[in-house]
Amino acid sequence: MRLKFKPFESNKMFHLNLSLFSKTKSLENKIDLFHDKLLDAAMTFKKAVRVFLDEGRSENYKKLSKQVKQIEHDADNLRRDIENNLYTQNLIPDLRADVLHLVENLDKVINKFDEVTYMFYIEKPEIDQNYHIRINELCDLSAECAENMAKASRAFFRDLSSVRDYSQKVYFIEHESDLSADNLRKAIFDSELPLANKLQLSNFINEIANIGDIAEDFIDELLIFTIKRDI
């Protein structure tokens, strides 16, 4: 005789569990996806600047620039979704304002990546070969700041003890990025380039270094929110 096993009780439990967490599960995924977008934006930005320095406003660059724009657009949609869900489902009422603030500041960095990539596309700055390595270095540092900012923010949702580790990295890298930007600016203004070029390049450097500054401000707030989030 074959026994037919009907896991009725466990099924019931499963359904209860599923309905209880289905709403939050979908929002958890969106928040994760939003952080992924920031990481994607940082990596694509790095690649795009490298391509621009090597090839100028080539087809490759246009493709990468569009890619950053698309990431920014997707991130905006996700941000709106997250904000709407948090309010309509009345989730984390005590921390909702903090989380919304975090999400908006993360979005600011993604916007900045898009803005700078588009600036390269529109302004087509002429950059001397001598500065390529240092500009790449500055872009790498800014992207690394944003990546660690995304990791710290992700940790805020799941693993509070890691927030501090990633935050420390952001502070360190942002300082390095400031030094790198200062050296680059000094080198540009010490050069024989026309003033218009100097000012244009300086503006680009400011915009790239600004990514690290936004990340630093974000971390300052995140650490306060972490204290609030800890029981």
């Binding site: 929002l27 989730l91 989380v99 509070l160 800890d230 029981i231």
Partner: peptide, 25 residues
């Protein structure tokens, strides 16, 4: 209870939103 909950939260790495649901229940 405070120490117990603190240890559980730190070790379990539960997502903030899931923790919110658990807290409500």
């Amino acid at each position: 209870l405070y120490w117990l909950v603190r240890v559980i939260i730190r070790k379990s790495h539960t997502h903030l939103l899931r923790q919110d649901t658990y807290t409500r229940v």
